[in-house]
Design a protein around this nucleic acid. Sequence first.
DNA 1: GTTTTATTCAAGTACTTTATTGAATAATTG
DNA 2: CAATTATTCAATAAAGTACTTGAATAAAAC
Lengths: 224, 224
Amino acid sequence: MKQQNETQHIVRSRIYDNLGLISQSIASPIRLRILQSLANSPCTVESLSVKSGESVANTSQHLQKMLRAGLLKCERQGVSRVYSLANQKVLEVWLALQNLASELNPQIQLDEETLCPEELCTPLSMLEVLKLVKAGKATLVDARELEDSQGSPIHGALHIPPTDLKKPSTTLAKNKTVFVFCRGRYCTLANPLVEKLRDKGFKAFRLREMAYEIQKQAEEIQWN
Amino acid sequence: MKQQNETQHIVRSRIYDNLGLISQSIASPIRLRILQSLANSPCTVESLSVKSGESVANTSQHLQKMLRAGLLKCERQGVSRVYSLANQKVLEVWLALQNLASELNPQIQLDEETLCPEELCTPLSMLEVLKLVKAGKATLVDARELEDSQGSPIHGALHIPPTDLKKPSTTLAKNKTVFVFCRGRYCTLANPLVEKLRDKGFKAFRLREMAYEIQKQAEEIQWN
DNA sequence: GTTTTATTCAAGTACTTTATTGAATAATTG
DNA sequence: CAATTATTCAATAAAGTACTTGAATAAAAC
């Protein structure tokens, strides 16, 4: 009995040490940026280095830290190595952290409002939006870069990349409300598109959610 | 337009810095232990120091780190200060982290099995268990210490603290299955109780979930 | 109003993490 | 097979974090 308690104590310590390691491996602004990039599409070291604004060597080191903790996987593709999330649970932690932050910190609330103004956002819940889309009463638009749109495609969404802003190559049904999403609450790609569409007389709104959240919600609808 | 992009860049940097700060503030085995303790009931510095096995001064410093990040709140109660979670979103991050860890790391999977053996656990989902309990076909038992049971009481659960193991002061209906919960997947308080009940001829199982998860699920049932 | 109790603070040392540099590697291309 | 490309490695300096110690604080009890 005493021995058993000792074993439990050791095992528990090992668990908490491992949990510490995993949480350490996401605990840095740069690594969170990387995670956010990888949330949308797998990337090479160089492209992550550009996106995060860090040197290649530094980016590589951050990637390896997360790789060692098991958060990422890495595969060769020609000359490059392509990193991606090991697992969708990584995204769940990242989302939980975003939710926590915006609840805890008034500064973050203000900053989120700057990037993703209330006025542009729909008052509807994502569930309601998706139901409208499914019923053919609304159009869902993906405003992300081509790379991300291909990395995590959303079924039923029309892709209008930032490059198409000036010369919109697609025609949207005028009588349907348009809901635009991008890489989530800290991304502003959807904003100019919503504004442009409103100028043209559309009813247009942006969603705060990132593609993964939309995908997840859409899957849930399937089963009900 | 250029200026707007610059503003967005600054704002985004500030958000990521803040997110980094928050994630830093949970990234340590000791602080995760503290979080786990606080998930069940508010605690004084001294009791957390005992639970985590660290000196009072060190515990206090860890607490202040989380307090500064906004994760905790603190109020005086007589001579002592009582710390508690600022917000349930903190728990959501902690749970997401646990889920991630047990998916990523085979070592953690093994260790979890040691603390919370499959053989003791119910194959039913928590939703199914709660429905049985609600229908009066099963008994829900809280195996936590008195302090935790009072800190986060679960409506409809019968409390059998560890001290009651030898002289069970309560009588359970023999014809109902018994489901026991404690502080969650790294806690072993429920195990001896389940074994004891099985010896006595009960159908008894433990739940892996912590009180907060049970509470949350129970609330969801209310609305359906 | 002195003592007790619970907690924090300040200072110090040991350790870890970060970003930078330039060299090393290893698959691919010419 | 030499050159190119994408990435990692190794070494370093600077910054930040962790734990300990003993003193300081501040509310409560005597």
